[in-house]
Design a protein around this nucleic acid. Structure first.
Lengths: 343, 343
DNA sequence: CTGAAAGCGCTAACAT
DNA sequence: ATGTTAGCGCTTTCAG
C-alpha cells in the first residue's frame, strides 16, 4: 500500500525515452513533433504504471495552478446558497480548474489571512463573494489580482461584479399582481429594510422597491403602504398581524423574502384570511419551503446557481475582466399564492 | 502593480545571510541555532519586502501541503449542511490547514476525477462525506490514504467514521414524550423510510426507530403505528391527512424529519387539531424553519457543525486514525410542540 | 524528431 | 552559528 508515487521520470525510463519526450506527449503538446511510436510507448507506460502528474511540481514551473479561490463572508453557511457553490464548482470542473472555498465568517481580520492562504498557494484568481448584495471594500492583498465580485459591488475596483437583477425582479412582482387584476390594497412587507441597523435600506430592498413602484405606476396602480422591518419569519408574522389588527384590509402582500412570507401566511391564517382568495402574496428568494406552503408561494428566485457559474466563467475569460456589473435575471416561480382581488 | 513576488532568496540577500539561515528563521525552527542578530535582520527584511512563502514550492520539498480535501456527494447543496462545512473550515483554519471542498453531485464517475484532482495537488488527507448517513464503498484511489468518513460507513475500510448518534436521538425523542405523560396514541411518521426505493429502510431511520422503540418499551409505552414513507413535506402532509381521514386519533407524532413535521402541521391545522394541546409533535433535524413554526417545533438537532469539526480533528490526529465509529450526540431543541396528552 | 541541462522556490543533509 | 550543495517533479530553452 501507499507505495511511492510514480513520477514522470519513471514513465520515461519505462518507455525508453527522455523525460522531455514524456513531458511533451503527456501534456499533449504538438508544437514539438514526437513520433507516433514513441508517443504510444509513453502513453502505454503511463497507463501501466498508473502515472498521475504532480500538479504542485508542475505549477512551480508554470506559475499556473489551475486553481480558483472563493472567499466568502458566510455564504457556505446560508441555507439557500448551496446552489451558488454548486454552480461555481461545476463551472470550474468543466474548465478543469479546482475551486477552493473558504469562509471568513464575516470576520474582517480573518479575511486577510484567508486571502493570503489562497495566494500563498498560488491561486490563479479569486472570487470574492458575499451572502447578500452589498458594497464592499476589498482587502489590500487583492489589488492587482485577477478578481471577480460575486453578489457585491466595489466601486473603483477594476473587476466585474455578478449580482441578481433585483430591479427587474421588482418589476416582475408588480406585473404578476397587475396581471391578476390588482390595482389597490397592495402592501410591501419588509420594504427597503430601512431599520435602525440599516437606515438607508439595503441594496436588494432599494432595487426591488424601485422596480416594484416603477412598474406599479406604469400599470396605474400603487402601493397602499410600505412596512419597513427586518426580513425574518418572525418579522413577517408580527408586521402582518399588526397590519390586520390596525384594521387594514390588504388585498395583496409583496413580501421581501420567503421568510417574511412564511410569517405572513401564519398571521393571515390566524386571522382566518385565505390565500389567495382574500389576499394574494408574492415574494422573493425561492427557498425550499416556498413550494411546501399551502398554497405554494409565488416568488422571484434568487439565481444562485447561475450567479456561481457566471462568476467562474468570467474569471476564466481574460476578455471579460473589465468593471462591468452583470445582472442575472431572477426567474419567476409562479405557484398558487396569487389570485384576482376579491370583489 | 503585480510586481514579481519576493522570494526567500531576496530576503536572504537583503538581510545579508544565506538562504538557509533565512529558511530557518522564517520557518521558526530552533534545532539549528541562529544568532538573534541575524534572526532579527531576516525577520525585518521579510517584513520590509512583504515576503510571503510560496507554499507550492515548499510542499514540493516537504511532501506536505497542509491541505485537506473534502469530497462529498451533494453536501454543499443541501440546505441544512452549511454548518458542517463551517465546522470543518474553522477546525482546519485553527490548525493552519486549508480545506478544499469538492462535490460530485452524486455522480460516481465524477468522483474518481475529483479525488484524483485532490491527490494530484498533493492533498495530505481526504474527508469523504455524504449528505445522509449510509454505507459507501470508497473509490480505489483512496485506498492506503489518510481518510476520514463523514456521515457514512465503509465496513472493511480502515478509517474512522463520524456520524450522528441516531439511536440515542430516537431514545431522546421517546423520553420527551414519556416525560410529558404520553403512553399511547403515538405514531411514527416516516418510520424507517422502508419505501420501494429503499425497502430495508435507511440507516438513520433504522437507528432512530430502534432507539425510539427501545425507550418507549422501557417506559411501558409503545407505538400505535408506523407509517413508512419518504421524508419530504408533501409526504408528511399526505400521510397525516390520510391517518386522520382513516378515523385515527393520534396523541403524538414522531416525525422522521422537520420537513415531515412541516407537512404534518398543515394536515393537523386543516383538521382543526391544535399542537400541542391535542397532538404533540417531536421531530429530527432542526432546520431553520423548525423555530419559525407555530408552535415552534421540538426536535433533535443534526450536529452538523460538530460533525465537520470532529472529522477534521480526527484526520489531523495520527493517533486516532483507526476504524472507530464516532457517534456525535444530537442535542434536543425543546420548544413548544410537546404537551401533555389530552384527557 | 529527440535529449541534456537548467531552473521554478524552497528545505535539509552535510560541511565548516 | 552559518553556508554549500543537492534535489523535490516538472517544463522548457537550446543543441543535436
Amino acid at each position: 500500500m501507499a507505495r511511492r508515487r510514480v513520477t514522470m521520470a519513471d514513465v520515461a525510463r519505462s518507455a525508453g525515452v527522455s523525460q522531455t519526450t514524456a513531458s511533451f506527449v503527456l501534456s499533449g503538446r504538438t508544437d514539438k513533433r514526437i513520433s507516433t511510436a514513441a508517443s504510444e510507448r509513453v502513453r502505454e507506460a503511463a497507463r501501466m504504471l498508473g502515472y498521475r502528474p504532480n500538479v504542485t511540481a508542475r505549477s512551480l514551473r508554470t506559475k499556473s495552478t489551475q486553481t480558483i479561490g472563493l472567499v466568502s463572508d458566510t455564504i457556505t453557511t446560508t441555507p439557500y446558497a448551496g446552489d451558488l457553490i454548486r454552480g461555481a464548482l461545476e463551472a470550474a470542473r468543466a474548465r478543469e480548474h479546482l475551486l477552493v472555498i473558504t469562509e471568513t465568517g464575516g470576520d474582517r481580520a480573518a479575511e486577510s489571512g484567508l486571502v493570503n492562504g489562497l495566494l500563498d498557494r498560488q491561486a490563479d484568481a479569486v472570487i470574492y463573494a458575499t451572502m447578500y448584495t452589498r458594497y464592499v471594500t476589498l482587502p489590500q492583498e487583492l489589488y492587482g489580482r485577477r478578481v471577480v465580485l460575486l453578489n457585491c459591488l466595489a466601486p473603483g475596483f477594476d473587476a466585474p461584479s455578478v449580482i441578481p437583477d433585483e430591479i427587474e425582479a421588482g418589476r416582475a412582482a408588480a406585473r404578476l399582481l397587475l396581471t391578476a387584476g390588482h390595482t389597490g390594497g397592495i402592501w410591501a412587507i419588509g420594504g427597503h429594510q430601512a431599520v435602525p441597523a440599516t437606515p438607508d435600506g439595503i441594496f436588494a430592498g432599494n432595487e426591488r422597491m424601485r422596480g416594484l413602484q416603477e412598474a406599479l405606476r406604469a400599470g396605474r396602480a400603487g402601493l397602499e403602504g410600505v412596512i419597513e422591518c427586518e426580513w425574518g419569519a418572525e418579522d413577517g408574522y408580527r408586521e402582518v398581524r399588526g397590519l390586520l389588527e390596525d384594521g387594514h384590509t390588504p388585498r395583496a402582500l409583496v413580501c421581501a423574502t420567503d421568510r417574511v412570507s412564511f410569517g405572513a401566511y401564519q398571521a393571515l391564517a390566524e386571522a382566518g384570511l385565505s390565500v389567495p382568495d382574500e389576499v394574494s402574496v408574492v415574494s422573493f428568494d425561492d427557498q425550499d419551503f416556498a413550494a411546501w406552503l399551502h398554497p405554494a408561494l409565488s416568488t422571484l428566485a434568487l439565481p444562485h446557481y447561475e450567479l456561481g457559474r457566471l462568476a467562474v466563467e468570467l474569471i476564466l475569460d481574460q476578455e471579460r475582466l473589465d468593471a462591468t456589473v452583470h445582472r442575472v435575471p431572477m426567474p419567476p416561480r409562479v405557484r398558487g399564492s396569487i389570485g384576482p382581488p376579491p370583489d
